[in-house]
């Protein structure tokens, strides 16, 4: 169980803002995630969810604000300190982002081979073990990513995200493009990995079934701000009109989708 009140936050964001030219994507994000807690950020397309993840990973540099991991400021890190910071993370990308020039097992073992310089045989063994933990047979390791279905690619991407035993894993739209059954399989795997390995997880999705399954706590991002957060059991009684509209998928409500009229 997450220990929100006991331990200092694993991830802490204060007033994080980010703009691209005149588009203000993040407008002062405050978010705190406890060790081993699983937080899901929900929100419509283009609300800044991916930018939020990439800012924490130092792929995008925020314009303002503070991002702390284990109490250490990470905004502006470079060189060895940034590498040390990134070593704590694993990430499952929306489109899996597998390297198509490499075999499946080489994808899974990438961090072990390139960053940890593990011998090839040992890395392969670890990759096959991790593939097994996400329900994939050893012979899948010898295929190329293009030969796999979308669901299998997600499992491989999950294996790649967890193989080096990261402390924190980000899941970017983990069920997008999958049928409901495969989506649930992926959700189950995420819950299992997070629980068994004691990982702190931050996921972004607009799939409410996925959010309810993998989250301890849910936060909603709208127009670059966290407008609500609470335990997942509270979301159905939030009393927040934005949450109500979002979880029921209604076109009418305070959230206005940008539709261009011809």
């Amino acid at each position: 169980m997450p220990q929100t009140n006991v331990l200092p936050p694993k991830i802490e964001l204060q007033n994080v803002t980010k703009s691209f030219i005149s588009k203000h994507v993040l407008r002062g994000i405050d978010l705190s995630i406890a060790p081993q807690e699983s937080v899901v950020v929900i929100g419509g397309s283009g609300t800044g969810k991916s930018v939020l993840l990439k800012s924490i990973l130092s792929i995008i540099r925020p314009d303002k604000g503070s991002i702390k991991i284990d109490g250490q400021e990470t905004v502006g890190l470079s060189g060895a300190k940034r590498d040390e910071h990134l070593a704590k993370f694993g990430m499952l990308f929306q489109g899996s982002a597998l390297f198509d020039s490499l075999l499946v097992w080489e994808n899974v073992a990438f961090k072990l081979l390139q960053a940890e310089h593990m011998p090839r045989g040992q890395a392969k063994e670890r990759a096959i073990e991790t593939l097994a933990s996400v329900g994939l047979a050893a012979d899948v390791g010898e295929l190329s990513p293009a030969e796999l279905s979308g669901g299998m690619q997600k499992r491989v991407a999950l294996a790649r995200a967890i193989v080096a035993n990261p402390e924190i894993v980000f899941f970017d739209e983990p069920t997008t493009g999958l049928d409901p059954i495969m989506a649930d399989v992926i959700n189950e795997l995420i819950v299992k990995c997070v629980r068994e390995r004691g990982i702190t997880a931050l996921s972004i999705t607009h799939d409410m079934a996925s959010a309810r399954k993998i989250a301890d706590r849910i936060a909603m991002l709208h127009e670059g701000k966290i407008i609500w957060q609470g335990h997942k059991s509270e979301i159905d009684h939030s009393g927040n009109p934005y949450i109500e509209q979002f979880i029921h998928g209604r076109a009418e409500g305070p959230i206005k989708m940008q539709v261009r009229h011809m």
Partner: peptide
Amino acid sequence: VTEQIDALTTLSTNPYKY
């Protein structure tokens, strides 16, 4: 565009060097 370059960064590999 398929985020493989971002994936390299999250795998502790500098895309410039790799």
